[in-house]
Simulated assay, not measured.
Amino acid sequence: MYAALANPVLKESEGALAGMARILDRPPVTMSDGLRGDTLLTGRWQHGPVHDTLAALPTHVIVAHHGGDGDMALRASGGINIRARSRVGTMVIIPRGQDGRWDIAGQSDVSHVYLTHNRLASTVEELTNGRDFDLLHRVAFEDPTVVNLVTMLSNEAASGERSSRLFVEQAIDLLCTQLVRGHSTFGALADPAARRGGLADWQVKRVVTYMRSRMEEEIGLDELAALVHLSRFHFCTAFKKATGRNPHETLTMMRIARAKEMLADPDMPVTEIGLCVGYQTPSSFAASFRKTVGMSPSEFRRRL
């Protein structure tokens, strides 16, 4: 039956489990044994805030977030710097062999899958034709397919039913396929837009969503490039090929569009609107608005 592991030989997944336990106030408890490829599953459980460095793990860790909204930040090697707000239905991917500093606010209600690379690669060998790949970091990322699969796996693991073993193994295979298609170096290269030198659709969505959610803050190119694991130079080139605008132009258009909406409220000061959409001074807001719209914010408001 499904039960917590008690194997004296430390396997890859158990090593990853121990690594996670070192930075969490409550260590995850696995509810599965004997799964193909030494895959480990947890039921749904909770842990508190995290402000620590996670050492490189020997397996991939896939996390489904079930509750406890809060800010998350990852600073990892290779210039990766990702900030996001966790919400119900988002997920996290911690790729094997990559360390990083994690800062997670508040209580988190989660379930985990510990997935060895051998299990992942063998499951999708037909898809990748044996080509090497790795998973990408994801922080509070929206992928309902991954989240639903991890949630189903955690429910089955907690049930303790031996008859659910076949279902679990097949669901893990589906999870592996979705991870490689949407969250791996192979998936990024397989996308037609990426092959043409642009960004894949998921990459554009990730960057645009990040811009929109942090419009009031200063957002640097390095920060955006890290979201899709590209250098600053290649990110700017690929973003423009995919969207027709460079990142700065896109962010400006978002800010001005939001400012137009806010200018419809006559009680909201123009200077406050500028700050709300990311401009540090009234003059910079006015100059950007005039350049984009052809008139000052005040004149635009008078014409409404």
Rank of each mutant, 00 (worst) to 15 (best):
R44G: 01
A158V: 03
G160S: 07
D99E: 08
S159D: 11
F141M: 08
M72Q: 13
G130I: 11
A73L: 14
S159H: 06
D134F: 00
L74H: 07
Q107G: 15
D69N: 08
R138I: 00
A121S: 05
I80P: 04
V92C: 11
I104D: 02
R85E: 13
V50W: 06
M152H: 10
G100R: 08
D71V: 09
L54H: 12
G97E: 10
R85Y: 08
S77L: 09
V63G: 03
Y114E: 04
D132Y: 15
D52H: 15
V63F: 03
V113N: 09
I62H: 05
M152G: 12
L149C: 03
F133P: 00
R119K: 14
Y114A: 04
L40D: 02
S77G: 12
L54W: 12
A56P: 14
V113C: 12
L135I: 01
T145K: 07
T42K: 05
D69F: 05
S159F: 05
G89V: 04
S86A: 10
N155M: 13
D71M: 11
E161Q: 09
G68N: 12
D132F: 15
P95I: 14
R75F: 04
A56C: 09
H137W: 09
H60L: 00
T116G: 13
L40G: 02
L41R: 03
V92K: 06
E126R: 12
I93C: 13
G48H: 10
M72R: 13
G43C: 08
A76R: 02
V110F: 02
Y114C: 02
A56I: 07
W102I: 11
M152T: 10
V92P: 00
L136R: 03
D109E: 14
T128F: 06
L120T: 05
R96L: 13
T53W: 12
R162C: 02
S108H: 14
R101F: 13
I80C: 09
E142T: 06
L120H: 06
T90M: 00
T123W: 08
Q98D: 09
G78C: 08
R85C: 08
V146Q: 04
G48P: 05
V147L: 01
L136E: 03
R44Q: 03
V150M: 02
D134A: 00
H47L: 06
A84W: 10
E142N: 07
R75L: 06
D103V: 15
G48C: 08
T128M: 04
R119I: 05
T90D: 01
H65L: 02
H66Q: 08
L54V: 07
V61I: 10
V88I: 15
